[in-house]
Nucleic acid binder design. Sequence first.
DNA 1: TCTGACTACTCAAATTTATGAGTACCATGC
DNA 2: GCATGGTACTCATAAATTTGAGTAGTCAGA
Lengths: 189, 189
Amino acid sequence: MALRHAVLAALLNEELSGYQLAKAFDTGVANFWHALPQQLYAELTRLESDGLITGREVVQDTRPNKRLFRVTDAGTAEMERFTAAATKPSFIRDDLLVKVQAADHVDTGELIAQLTERAAFARAKVELFGSLLHTMRGDRTEEDHLRHGERIGPYLTCLRGLAFEQENRDWCERSVAILNERRSARARA
Amino acid sequence: MALRHAVLAALLNEELSGYQLAKAFDTGVANFWHALPQQLYAELTRLESDGLITGREVVQDTRPNKRLFRVTDAGTAEMERFTAAATKPSFIRDDLLVKVQAADHVDTGELIAQLTERAAFARAKVELFGSLLHTMRGDRTEEDHLRHGERIGPYLTCLRGLAFEQENRDWCERSVAILNERRSARARA
DNA sequence: TCTGACTACTCAAATTTATGAGTACCATGC
DNA sequence: GCATGGTACTCATAAATTTGAGTAGTCAGA
């Protein structure tokens, strides 16, 4: 029951449709959680029937109508309760790390390719998060925004996402460098 | 079918029993994946019946007997195939980030407590990974080990785990500092 | 000697997440 | 004028992960 709270958290900051939510959770803009559209629509239905959110139909002439959801008082209370409860530790669970764990027993050429691709992906995310942060803080410095801004929750989670992707990028690049060195050293031997 | 490969990767480096594997995957020593004992025993059974690993009974007089597993040639080939396939991007999925995302709408006292606890957890992990790395590289410097050591896969994944927990620690500490500042600023107002 | 903790596993069920396949309508470019 | 891609959703199923409850013997400390 954690997606439930991820959706609530997203809707607390902004009134969104299922589709908008799905985009955010899919592309990783909402970098505090990940979910597919099907899951989100299902969760929205459950949340609404539990009275934690309410939806309102927005009629559009050029596009299909949509339903925008916002959190009810009961929803805020549920979020409060969730926040007070113990937090499970989070673990890395990444196919790429599994592949690197086996690096000494497989062809490193393929592995280097995967690492290079991931580094590029991470760089793109670093850029994305960087500009998101800039948008959120506007003209202020980060320090100023965090002290005096009104909404800092999304800023803080975005900072975490940024650090995560920076580390991904650096680690991938370093791993590629090492594996390449070892390849050429072995080739010379 | 990713746990499958995580188990293979772990067993490629070391012959292990289900119980040992479970410990590694539970405490996060195997920081490239996480899984519960039940899942691992089930996966070991499947892997063995698929011929990707073989187990041998080890009789112990003081403790229950155990079965040690190692990867077969077919298992190594499967790992090779897996490594060459495209890697799915990995996402953060963390209850704590969900809570911070909602920081502007809930009582921050509870949130600060959760962040403080997580920071302590992260510090413990940083220490653990630090000593694991030290054990793996022995007397060598990291640079030397990564260039000339024999087994660097587990070292690289442990480095990733270390960086992840350092970032967790720093981010939690910074978030706590900011939330505290804002609390006292609000109290004065 | 009793309690709690550790080794070494197993079985069953619930919950969560991912995959695959659609519907339907509008706008844009070739 | 037709294919491609975006908006806005839904249904069904499969796979992965978590939760809960056991078994059974050993060892160390109060």
